[in-house]
Design a protein around this nucleic acid. Structure first.
Length: 561
RNA sequence: AGCCUGGUGGUGUAAUGGUAGCACAGAGGUUUUUGGUACCUUUAGUUGGGGUUCGAAUCCCUACCGGGCUGCCA
């Protein structure tokens, strides 16, 4: 695992705080965090930031980090999600050891605490309907008014709460509310609901409960029970902190410190579960693991490495101000990692036939290709070479501009790892389209250089016609065509900004035979083209399907825009 | 409107009263059997206005501009 390079003078505000607490001896200098997703959807890049923060801080300060599923609302939560979450966190490279918990593990304790609050006159059963409660709540500028049920006796509250628990009332008929302050400027403090009636089977507790605690009544207490020292969450929970504190204090239990940070936003995409769900449900993408999705499953299928994502999460920093990170940073982190670890292969997306006129008709030889120039231990591999080859169509120009280094008539180029060739003749079809290049090769240039040391500036990739394998390649582009997909015309919708060309399928590609043995999901580089990985879609057929993880940086294309 | 929050190059993020730094992006260059990589150089910033101070991104006042909050979601 990569060690985050946190230098002494470069700590973010959360780590600064944790460090101070540790040095002052707070919590006996323990550091204990947790990552608490709700199992109602798949994890995305925004969650990755939180995972890296929580597990990262634990590692850096010699502490622990728990994985906890916040399963207090059985309506949308599913086991399917719970399993994906564990798999994703593990894939990202983190380990919670034996500390895998559920908020539902604490339902009994939470219930007992609710009873305790009632006995202390700090909670009451309320009969107000949803609508009535909304009216009583007041507004942003006006205080709320007390519920008419606020002054029920402890005995009555106890009895009613027990009957709620027994399932005697229908959903929404009654709630248990904390008795705090209906005039508080913080709406969360206006007698918030802490238990509601939900007749719904729970993935973990089955039909044991008819009442479920709200987030506010479960989260802090769960943290407390687990001995969490720093409860790190996103900014939207800032207004809930007074409540978090209120419960810990009024229950007299261990009081973790909640700290909020700004969630991650990335341009050209959306980062909310709700919007991603729509993309999936409305068929704009092919599922949660579509390689264009910012879900961890999508990114994994696309070929993102855990290390590149961790590196990204470290580089985006942690602060309280709203932010939108440019995708270029993500792609930089990806390429940086891939450049170091991805094996190299040869392939052409748009094949153009090449015949070497002075090469023996039936001869086939092998040349040695370097597997990874950044890693000498990766060694070399044999690649077959013969009279009939393919190069990429865009590596030839009949009428090239001044600084074009690749093929054109009479211009000598290097076929990477093989020979120098010079095009002598172009073959066209009736419509004038180039269909073949007749070339001559220099037998003395085997391996890619000659004794005379002459300079050949252009080097291109190629495949041997007799051994190359056909495959389907899926080229991905950003999902949205605008940096801020939420910025729309009136009556518009973020889906208006979807990029209709975010997926382009190329079915003409040819790759060297060894690509067949690449492991699904493990990225490799097709030299000069980009990074790719085998998609699971081809697994059950003979078809080889590749995903383009990310293109190479291309300063030539950029300069010629 | 009330409350809470936050404003540092294009984008992020440091500097907590003492040289505004780093990364990505941009521009230029060196190297190169990937027009990749690596390396070098470079453009560009403290929201405005007052104040305190020898000295302010930092402290105070004020204006302006973002974001959040009226679920029995989390």
């Amino acid at each position: 695992m990569s060690e985050p390079e946190q230098t002494e003078q470069h700590l973010d505000f959360i780590r600064t705080r944790v460090k101070e607490d540790q040095e002052s001896g707070k919590n006996d200098s323990r550091v204990h965090t947790r990552f608490p997703p709700e199992p109602n959807g798949y994890l995305h890049l925004g969650h990755a930031k939180s995972i890296c923060l929580n597990f990262g801080i634990a590692q850096e300060f010699g502490g622990l980090c728990n994985l906890r599923l916040d399963d207090t609302n059985p309506v949308a939560e599913k086991t399917e999600y719970a399993e994906a979450i564990q798999s994703d966190v593990r894939w990202l490279g983190f380990d919670w050891e034996d500390r895998f918990f559920h908020a539902s593990d604490y339902f009994d304790q939470l219930h007992a605490w609710a009873v305790q609050l009632i006995k202390h006159g700090k909670a009451f059963v309320c009969d107000l309907t949803f609508e009535e409660m909304r009216k009583h709540r007041g507004t942003l500028v006006e205080p709320g008014t007390n519920s008419p049920y606020r002054e029920r006796s402890v005995e009555e509250n106890l009895e009613l709460f027990e009957r709620m628990k027994l399932g005697e009332f229908s959903d929404g008929a009654k709630t248990l509310r904390a008795k705090i302050d209906m005039t508080s400027p913080n709406l969360n403090m206006r007698d918030p609901v802490i238990y509601r009636i939900i007749h719904q089977e729970h993935p973990k507790t089955d039909n044991k409960w008819k009442i479920y605690p709200s987030y506010d009544f479960a989260h802090g207490q769960s943290d407390s029970l687990e001995g969490i020292t720093h409860s790190i969450c996103t900014l939207e929970f800032e207004h809930h902190r007074p409540l978090y504190d209120w419960f810990c204090e009024n229950l007299g239990i261990h009081h973790p410190q909640q700290i909020e940070f700004a969630r991650l936003n990335l341009n050209y995409t959306v980062m909310s579960k709700r919007k991603m769900l729509r993309l999936v449900q409305e068929g704009h993408v092919n599922g949660w693991d579509d390689p264009r999705m910012p879900t961890l499953q999508g990114m994994r299928r696309r070929g993102y490495t855990p290390k590149s994502i961790r590196d990204f999460c470290e580089k985006v920093g942690v602060a309280k101000r709203d932010n939108v990170i440019e995708v270029e940073l993500l792609e930089h982190c990806l390429r940086h990692d891939l450049n170091l670890c991805a094996p190299r292969r040869l392939g052409v997306l748009d094949p153009l036939k090449v015949t070497i006129s002075n090469y023996p008709d039936d001869q086939v030889e092998t040349v040695n290709a370097v597997n990874n120039p950044e890693d000498s231990d990766a060694g070399t591999r044999p690649v077959s070479f013969s009279k009939h080859l393919y190069v990429d169509r865009n590596d030839f120009m009949e009428d090239p501009p001044k600084k074009y280094f690749r093929m054109s008539i009479g211009k000598e180029v290097r076929l990477k790892y093989a020979f120098y060739i010079t095009c002598t003749e172009i073959v066209k079809d009736e419509e004038g389209k180039i269909i073949e290049l007749i070339c001559e090769y220099d037998p003395e240039s085997r391996g890619g250089d000659t004794a005379d040391g002459r300079k050949v500036r252009g080097t291109i990739q190629w495949v041997d016609a007799s051994t190359a394998k056909a495959c389907e390649i899926r080229l991905y582009d950003r999902l949205f065509k605008t940096p801020d997909p939420d910025k729309v015309e009136e009556d518009g919708d973020f889906t208006d900004n979807l990029n209709s060309e975010s997926l382009q399928t190329v079915d003409t590609a040819l790759v060297e035979a060894s690509v067949l043995s690449m492991e699904t999901g493990k990225p490799f580089q097709l030299e000069r083209v980009g990074y790719f990985c085998v998609d699971p879609d081809g697994a059950d057929s003979d078809k080889l399907v590749l995903n383009r993880t990310v293109a190479m940086r291309d300063s030539w294309a950029k300069a010629n825009k």
